[in-house]
Amino acid sequence: MTMWVRRVRAGLRGWGGVGAMAAVCALAVAFALLLPLTQPGGSGKAGSGGPGLAHATQAKAEGGCTTPAMRKAPEKYTLPPSGADGSTIAAIKARQGEKRKLVVGVDQNSYRWGYRNPNSGGSGDLEGFDIDLVHRIAQDILGDENAVQFKAIPTNQRIPAIKDGRVDMVIRTMTINCDRLAQVAFSAPYFKTGQQVLAPKSSTIKGYDDTLAKQRICTATGSTANTALTGDQKTGELVGSADLRTTVPNQLDCLVRLQLGEVDAVVTDGALAASQAAQDPTVELKGEPFTTEYYGVAMKKDANDLVRRVNQILVGYRADRTNGWQASYNRWLSATLGSDSSTSEPPAPQYLREN
């Protein structure tokens, strides 16, 4: 493994220290890891975007949506807030000793979202926007913001980790969509984003348009980007010669492939792409977002009391201007997404799921 890392590092010379370091980390850590509790910190610079064509379409997976209204707005189909404990929360609170923690699936490679800061000394702390939300939920349910057991999971293992009971929830830039609603339950949205193209600044790619012809595009397996691109290519919305064969377990692995010259572009959530552009000054966002998507907290389908409780927590988190959503945005995301958070704020929640 040491020799492999040295070879990859050699290939990444000239791509920027922080970005290269995170990229090596992403390939080296492919499976679930148990991580320590976290403290906030870190900094970054904004990436830049270019002109392009905005389609503002939803990913086309419809597995968990049973009506046209639900297919149009799956983020509205969650349960009303409640502060009451049920069987799921009672089981979490009944854990004893060192096991009395909220078990949460997170990322450790997404800069400013869920990021294991290599400059934090020997602690290897996690930090970021998603991590702040984890601490808020732990504080509400267990009375201790640090009563968390973090499990780092790849993009393509988020739903299996929930269904298998390895985690109580996943807070990992996870888009609410119909296909996922067939398998897990979601909270109300806590962030708004959209798919965008990331490519080298020197690239002729201009956005999600015909400039992607004959270009090699990387997406993460099981991601909404992968679903959107494969669906759009079938319907002709994406040029047929775009090469979509490169898929990876972790989204950040795509940045590594881009840096090594193995692909020509990456498609992922614009919020994540902006953070990657901040890590690597040789890449930039190309064009405007071509979907509208919302991140939610994912839980087991039958964990109704936990879903209601998280929705209750989110109400207070968004209203808290001192230590809530806005403060977390200012700390972690304003440097990459801009000081105006209005485009990232989810709409007022609607609770249309009945049971």
Rank of each mutant, 00 (worst) to 15 (best):
126 L>P: 00
127 E>N: 08
128 G>I: 03
128 G>P: 02
128 G>C: 07
129 F>N: 01
129 F>Q: 00
130 D>I: 01
130 D>Q: 12
131 I>C: 01
131 I>M: 06
133 L>S: 01
133 L>Y: 04
133 L>I: 04
133 L>K: 05
133 L>D: 02
133 L>A: 06
134 V>S: 04
135 H>Q: 13
136 R>M: 07
137 I>W: 06
138 A>V: 07
138 A>D: 00
138 A>S: 05
139 Q>H: 07
139 Q>G: 14
140 D>N: 03
140 D>W: 07
140 D>K: 07
142 L>H: 11
142 L>P: 01
142 L>K: 01
142 L>T: 10
142 L>F: 04
142 L>R: 00
143 G>M: 04
143 G>C: 13
143 G>P: 06
144 D>S: 13
144 D>F: 09
144 D>M: 14
144 D>G: 06
145 E>V: 14
146 N>Y: 14
146 N>H: 06
146 N>P: 10
146 N>T: 07
147 A>H: 08
147 A>D: 13
148 V>G: 01
149 Q>N: 13
150 F>G: 06
150 F>Q: 06
152 A>E: 09
153 I>M: 15
154 P>G: 10
154 P>C: 14
155 T>A: 05
155 T>Q: 10
155 T>E: 14
156 N>V: 08
157 Q>W: 14
157 Q>R: 09
158 R>Q: 15
158 R>L: 07
159 I>G: 12
159 I>N: 09
160 P>T: 09
160 P>Y: 04
160 P>M: 05
161 A>R: 00
161 A>H: 02
161 A>K: 03
162 I>A: 08
162 I>Y: 15
162 I>F: 07
